[in-house]
């Protein structure tokens, strides 16, 4: 801090990080510089308290049991991993096949897209967002339609004669109710 107000050195001094020679230099500067002295008074107390608190934690030291446990976890993971890897590859492969089939069997662009029944009718109560719960359902009732099984039964209906009722007028959207496309099971 020779001559200038070196804040970093002052902090190193407070944290007891300086060699004796540098400490002496800081102390000499503090004697003659009221500005650094004020800063020192402001920070030294907190430095002392932090150092004291840092000293309270006992070093956990080296522990053989810790090492053994780490090794057990690694072994357990190594045993699990090949199975998981295989499952993951199968899942990814399956998903790709599904996507491909879905694309191939996708209905014509002018086929009607039906909204699902309102969220509130489908999900268990605890899964409904607070907003959706307090929003009156505005959709027409599709439950009859769903009971007939399409598209859940696995086979898309013939286009003519249509087993589906005419697509209802687009419901007026209310905040909190979302339009969701039906899941198609192949």
């Amino acid at each position: 801090m020779s001559g200038k107000h070196d804040q970093d050195r002052l902090i190193a001094y407070i944290l007891n990080e300086l060699p004796a020679e540098d400490r002496a230099r800081v102390e000499a500067h503090l004697k003659e510089c009221p500005r650094c002295r004020t800063r020192f008074e402001q920070l030294s107390q907190i430095g002392t308290r932090l150092n004291a608190d840092a000293g309270t934690q006992t070093d956990p030291g080296n522990e053989e049991a810790f090492l053994v446990e780490v090794n057990q976890r690694i072994d357990a993971e190594n045993e699990r991993r090949p199975v998981f890897g295989l499952l993951r590859r199968l899942a990814v492969g399956g998903a790709l096949v599904m996507l491909l089939l879905l694309l191939l069997r996708h209905p014509a662009p002018d086929a009607p897209c039906r909204p699902r029944a309102p969220v509130a009718q489908q999900r268990p109560d605890h899964k409904i967002s607070r907003l959706a719960k307090h929003t009156p359902a505005v959709y027409p009732d599709f439950s009859g339609l769903l009971e007939r099984g399409w598209p859940l039964a696995g086979k898309a209906p013939a286009l003519s004669p249509s087993p589906m009722p005419a697509f209802p007028a687009t419901p007026k959207l209310t905040e909190g109710v979302s339009l969701v496309f039906p899941k198609i099971k192949l």
Binding site: D59, P60, N62, L67, V70
Partner: peptide, 9 residues
């Protein structure tokens, strides 16, 4: 692990 476990813990 022996070298660094104390610091990490």
């Amino acid at each position: 692990v022996r070298r660094h476990q104390a610091a990490v813990r």
